[in-house]
Design a protein around this nucleic acid. Structure first.
Lengths: 196, 196
DNA sequence: GCCGTAAGTCAACAATTGATGACTTTTAAA
DNA sequence: TTTAAAAGTCATCAATTGTTGACTTACGGC
């Protein structure tokens, strides 16, 4: 806490502010999408001038691509045995707080999918960093087809929670939904077993 | 085809142009979302001046709400026995052309969910015209919870096809995916039967 | 045929957007 | 301490947004 009359100011460092902009952009993009998030808002959150965004990243497009690259952590999603995967992802989709960074890439994708400017970056990112690792983890013959099904449920839950974070359910309802999501995920991975 | 020197012009009618604006707006909103679709674009598609949008509907917000109200045809989605429902919806989600009006409400919802301006209208619409009829059709005890699961898969497929209409699959892959979606839908509705 | 009114057009508005170049401040090496 | 480059700020640009008011055109009852 500085004495009265003094102000706290961050030490000037290109790397630090670059990271601050990236973090603020990740937050804004995941909440408001590519179109909705303004460069001034992002810069404001990062505590820097809006001009620095264009300076450091070349433009909003490149910033968006950089955020996608940053928030791409598929190894945090696709691993483990089917049972463990189903339980973990179900908890992530239903229970986890919305601002959890793990789901950010999904949120960013779906919130920006309708923007023509972001579409190119989105498509490339999805294929390389979402479906790709998913298919590799699945490993089975129809992995590509199956990945669309899995991805749809994950993105769909993302949309649903984006619209209303508590899913318009009480605690018991969310608990029940988490069980259902877990069962369905497992059913997708093991098509020959009952869901119940 | 009019002779050279003559132009075709629509007969002046408030009702007709109102409908034309609504149709153009439905199309644009479902493709570009609330923020992405401009009033000038919509008016251009409808073949009228942009000023008429504000004139007839009061503003972009009200136009959006009117489009939601227009494209709300839940009775075209939620009916039939589980087997028939699963087959029909699977075809709709995987096979149908993207510009089919039946899925427009889903597309509009997900493409505009991130816009604060449209969020209020979206939430109200979803509850009243999507989850409501779905829960009523389901009829079972945990219908509300189940509706979130069903809705998530439907919206997720919508997002997926919004990003790449052909799902990045060949014809055989789409056929296989449609079977999988059908099986999963049925599994959601009948949790005690195997998926295979 | 005339004319009031509804329907449509046009120009312009204020606000916001992303981006740029000139300028000032800080930093760290010499 | 000096100084040159890096880092940050500011004012401003051009484009686009939704919206409004004044104007012009076309329709239908008299």
């Amino acid at each position: 806490m500085p004495a009265p009359g003094f102000i706290v100011t961050r030490r000037r460092s290109a790397e630090t502010t670059r990271a601050a902009i990236l973090e603020a952009a990740r937050c804004r993009f995941s909440r408001e999408g590519y179109e909705g998030a303004g460069v001034r808002d992002i810069a404001g959150d990062a505590g820097v001038d809006a001009a620095l965004v264009s300076r450091y990243f070349g433009g909003k497009d490149e910033l968006f691509a950089a955020v996608l690259e940053l928030s791409a952590k598929p190894d945090e999603l696709f691993y483990g045995a089917p049972e463990e995967f189903a339980a973990r992802i179900a908890a992530l989709l239903v229970r986890d707080p919305q601002d959890d960074a793990k789901m950010d890439c999904v949120l960013i994708m779906l919130r920006s999918a309708s923007s023509p400017k972001a579409a190119a970056a989105i498509r490339q990112f999805i294929e390389a960093r979402f479906y790709g690792p998913m298919v590799e983890w699945l490993g089975c013959a129809d992995a590509t087809v199956l990945s669309r099904l899995l991805g749809a449920l994950m993105m769909g839950m993302g949309v649903t929670r984006a619209i209303s974070p508590d899913l318009d359910l009480d605690a018991a309802g969310r608990e029940a939904l988490e069980r259902k999501v877990e069962a369905i995920l497992l059913a997708m991975l093991r098509p020959n077993q009952p869901v119940g």
